[in-house]
Nucleic acid binder design. Structure first.
Lengths: 147, 147
DNA sequence: TTCCATGCAAACTGTTTGCAACCTA
DNA sequence: TAGGTTGCAAACAGTTTGCATGGAA
């Protein structure tokens, strides 16, 4: 995601007001690479600013999504929507053991679909989810117990 | 998904009992290609057998998932988990206009990830979601209004 | 006859909404 | 000052669970 100040600027350009709560949410998100859920973001905001409500967090996340600063990532492990602070096209690595989610850096092209396999769809984009085991969980496999 | 009788057989092998409700659910699912949600399945079961409860539908879907007869597909359009009656590896086409979901038939290989891009993950499988517009919605684009 | 399955209602989780008080621009 | 923003509580949707009744093997 862009820097806090970039987002503040774009927020103001859209006519939104900048409140301390919103600024704190921006700060926590810019630079994050962990694909947190709304609840996780709420918890982090809470520890820095205990009086922020869930409503405000949800509202702000929705606004950021609409603006394209943030991308929602569906519900991979039934713990709610995860947010991707990198809205540009890229694929993901999902750890089936600890549910960690990482970005695949750079451009990796998905295959073209032959017409006979495309079911008549006009394809606009694609997203690959790679399922596997993250480095940390691989270590624990050879050594101690579960995550 | 397998035929109704195949599933009945495997269910009994696992020690589960075959009830009229379960048999009806199997019938509706075997042969389905529409990736319905639990609620959609419940509605269909209802019209054939009005006294079936949601509990039974949810329980049976969970059992089928555990057995591997059915695959859950996350929450693409916030209408709940969609079920894939084809549990073998394949990719999907999602219509961003009407939320239809279709299978990509046959084997389409996702790209291999170079080590420097794999973030240390040991990759076990992958799943590509192609986003686009289905044939029906393409027709409506050139002709009348929205879906 | 013995459990397992069913169905109802209540619980639960993630998210959205209504509304009065509040604060940014 | 004026209208957007906040935070509380209640509403909501999808799903799970507790428990007494009922049915399959």
């Amino acid at each position: 995601m862009s820097s806090t100040e970039d987002i503040v600027r774009r927020f103001m350009q859209k006519g939104y007001k900048i409140t301390p709560q919103r600024r704190k949410i921006f700060e926590l998100l810019s630079g994050d690479k962990s694909h947190p859920t709304a609840e996780e973001i709420y918890q982090r905001v809470q520890s820095a600013m205990p009086d922020v409500s869930r409503t405000t967090v949800y509202n702000t996340l929705r606004e950021l999504s609409v603006m394209g600063e943030l991308a929602g990532l569906g519900d991979l492990d039934a713990s709610g929507v995860r947010y991707d602070t990198n809205p540009s096209a890229h694929h993901h690595l999902f750890c089936v053991r600890c549910n960690a989610l990482a970005d695949v850096p750079g451009k990796v092209e998905a295959p073209e679909l032959a017409p006979e396999v495309r079911a008549g769809y006009r394809i606009e984009k694609s997203q690959i989810m790679f399922y596997g085991v993250c480095p940390e969980c691989q270590n624990e496999e050879t050594g101690a117990g579960p995550c």
